[in-house]
Simulated assay, not measured.
Amino acid sequence: MENVIDMLWQDYQKTEFLLTQPLSNDFSFAIVTAHNPLGSVLTPSQNRLRDRALQSKILEYRSPYRCLIGAAPDLSHMEKSWAIFIDKDQALELGREFGQHAIYYVNQGLLSLIACFEPHRDEVPMGLFHQRLKLVSDLPEL
């Protein structure tokens, strides 16, 4: 099982983000998804139900948020995600609640990957968030 997680961990580090508008570097935010918990591939309808539950939870924070898509560089895999203006601890708690191996966190424009369940994994710096950002006019339907 560790090999599968290691492979996923490598894939997570290649993720790019599709947004309809840029986000400011002035604020820290988390990027969290509810899709495909713990690496299991769910149906689109199962993922939509999980996403609605995540959005309801996000509303409880009473913080700004934006929809975005986390995607493989070739767009062969995409997951609806949310940029949420919450702190790192809240983001990790949210990631764990929705069964995610990891979350992304952006602080002063710098993107990092953080494990939700494996404290021995170091936070992985991934460079400038805007370099992984692709602005699109509309987000794809998933």
Rank of each mutant, 00 (worst) to 15 (best):
F98P: 09
L110P: 00
N36M: 06
D26L: 13
D87L: 02
Q46P: 05
L128C: 08
E118Y: 07
S40V: 14
K88E: 14
F129H: 01
E93K: 11
K14N: 14
F29P: 05
I69F: 04
E97C: 11
R52G: 07
L111K: 01
L49K: 09
Q13P: 00
N25I: 11
I5R: 13
S28N: 08
G127Q: 07
V32G: 01
H120Q: 13
R48K: 12
E79G: 10
P73W: 11
L54N: 06
L111T: 03
S45L: 14
D122G: 06
S81A: 15
L110C: 08
M1T: 11
P44V: 02
F17D: 00
E123I: 15
Q108N: 15
S24H: 04
D122A: 14
G39R: 01
L75Q: 14
R121A: 02
L49R: 08
Y61E: 15
Y65M: 05
W82Q: 13
Q55D: 04
M126L: 15
V4E: 09
W9K: 08
Y105K: 04
P119T: 13
S81P: 09
S28P: 03
P64R: 09
D87N: 15
I58P: 00
M126W: 02
P37N: 04
P22N: 08
A91I: 08
V32W: 00
M7E: 15
T33G: 01
I5F: 15
R66A: 11
I58D: 00
V124I: 14
V136Q: 08
L18Y: 06
H77I: 09
V124Y: 03
V106T: 03
K14M: 13
Y61D: 11
E93R: 08
L59I: 12
Q13H: 00
V106H: 02
L139C: 03
G39C: 03
I84M: 01
E79M: 10
V106K: 01
S45G: 00
V136N: 08
S137D: 12
L18C: 01
E60V: 10
A91K: 03
E60F: 10
A91W: 04
R50F: 03
Q46S: 13
L142M: 12
A115K: 02
R48C: 02
A34I: 12
D87Q: 07
E79I: 10
E60M: 13
A30T: 01
P140S: 04
P140D: 05
A53I: 10
L8V: 12
V124A: 12
L8Y: 13
Y12C: 11
Q131H: 15
S112C: 12
Q55V: 11
I31V: 10
I31H: 01
S45V: 14
Y105C: 04
L42D: 12
R132D: 09
Q13A: 15
A91L: 08
K88R: 14
F29M: 08
G127F: 07
L54Y: 05
S28D: 12
L110I: 15
L8D: 09
S81I: 07
L18N: 02
L94Q: 05
L113H: 09
E141V: 14
S76L: 06
E60Q: 14
Y61F: 15
L38I: 14
G95S: 08
A115W: 08
L19I: 04
K88L: 14
A115R: 03
L139I: 03
